[in-house]
Design a protein around this nucleic acid. Structure first.
Lengths: 249, 249
DNA sequence: TCGCAACAGAGAGCGCCGCTCTCGACAATG
DNA sequence: CATTGTCGAGAGCGGCGCTCTCTGTTGCGA
């Protein structure tokens, strides 16, 4: 990972050159196609054997090419994994957005997004692990993927923002958060929703819960703890929603 | 390693034969000692390079022996990792228990345990990853480690139980949990504290939050989100405590 | 006390892995 | 057409988990 420019855009633009702007020459077209095929094969294998089991050599075998040839397209295994990481962040972000039905009641929307993210995670547990589990290598700095990673939590934020605008959040109980704890840029990011520090803090908690409880379920930490994972997840979603001021009680 | 529950001991009994019951023969003593050395070297390397980077061969090199010889003591790399897993579960459990000062006010105890677990995790991030991150291989079934893994959450439960006994929990707000969601055995386990379904559900949430928020911090998910991780963690601890009925508001 | 069986360590080796380098073939460009 | 840059293949390096064989040693029952 150290050999890569530490800027996300730089990384991606390097990877996808000729893939973005319509490739003119035959060579460029072939390159773009092969890049996509490598990614597709990697994505398939990631889903089957997980990130630790994914090997550049097996991808090469799958595509019928020499392992060394793959290095013309991805400088290292880490770089390939980073590309998959971005792809998966987008997938889960899209799953979240697609699960949000903006015309429905906010509480229904909230539950829908939670379920959507969980369903994606259950169906793509290795991908979930790549995104939210232990970072495998040293890994590309979070900075580059922050924007894409934000897609899912922002979907949650949008619901809360709509509630604030339309009918206001219910009064909440519990300890309040030290304003200094929250990154100021975070408040700017959410300013369209006129989020207070308290809103933001509780939103972070909800996002953390969503990811955390799915992780517990996937990694077996709930094995002898819960009897009905669906029901417990539903409880989590409602509890976190209520904590933010949605009408769940 | 000395306080292993019977469960785990049964599984690893093969490994630790002669390590538990005082070894009589010279051979047995040598075996016990080497086993300990292998574990110590592994633990050291785990802390340095993490679970994915830990190799049986490097351990062998570290101890100046042939790599094949290590297999006399641990049948596979996974088995070695499982031993480390158990060791680390005990460490974090002990950190939690040591951070609990039973004579103090419950709220102080609660914060103490949270801080204790976090401090251990920050000081042992690779070990945290091993315990709560992505399961690396297929891994030894959770069943064998459940008892040891329970040590940390049980420390939290004890505080809540004491409050219930001494002065009762404060009334709580928010959605209630479907009783069918909780594993009945879990309720039996906590019956000394006369835990209700609601108590248990919120305890699970608190335990999940503790692990989850530390994971977020360690894996960089809070990078551009929080400005003061200490303060935000403190907020989490108080919020989850209050959610259980402790006096944090 | 002796002989046998269990055990311990070393070494070679198998098939993986990530990654590098070289070399011949080919396409793009002037 | 010649040059330049790209591409794929192959060989190879060191490392990995793991197995097998061989030798030397320990411990225990006859």
């Amino acid at each position: 990972m150290h050999k890569l420019p530490d800027n996300a855009r730089a990384v991606l633009s390097f990877l996808y050159t000729g893939l973005m702007n319509a490739p003119r020459t035959a060579r460029a077209r072939a390159r773009a196609e092969l890049t996509k095929e490598i990614l597709a094969s990697s994505r398939r294998q990631l889903g089957e054997v997980g990130a630790p089991g994914l090997s550049l050599r097996s991808v090469a075998r799958d595509l019928g090419m020499a392992s060394s040839a793959v290095y013309r397209y991805f400088a290292s295994r880490d770089e390939l994994l980073t590309a998959l990481l971005i792809e998966c962040y987008n997938e889960v972000g899209e799953a979240a957005e697609r699960s949000d039905r903006p015309k429905a009641v906010p509480e229904i929307r909230w539950l829908g997004v939670w379920r959507g993210v969980r369903n994606w995670s259950l169906a793509n547990r290795h991908e979930y692990a790549l995104l939210f589990g232990t970072p495998v290598p040293g890994y590309a700095a979070p900075h580059l993927t922050t924007e894409i990673a934000a897609r899912m939590p922002l979907t949650l934020a949008r619901i809360v923002a709509d509630v604030k605008r339309d009918r206001g959040l219910r009064p909440r109980t519990g300890p309040i958060c030290d304003p200094a704890a929250i990154e100021p840029a975070m408040l700017v990011l959410l300013e369209d929703g006129n989020f207070t520090v308290e809103d933001t803090a509780r939103l972070i908690l909800a996002w953390n819960r969503l990811v955390g409880i799915i992780g517990y379920e996937l990694h077996g930490h709930l094995a002898n703890v819960t009897a009905d994972d669906d029901a417990f997840f539903e409880y989590c979603a409602r509890a976190e929603g209520a904590n933010l001021g949605l009408d769940f009680d």
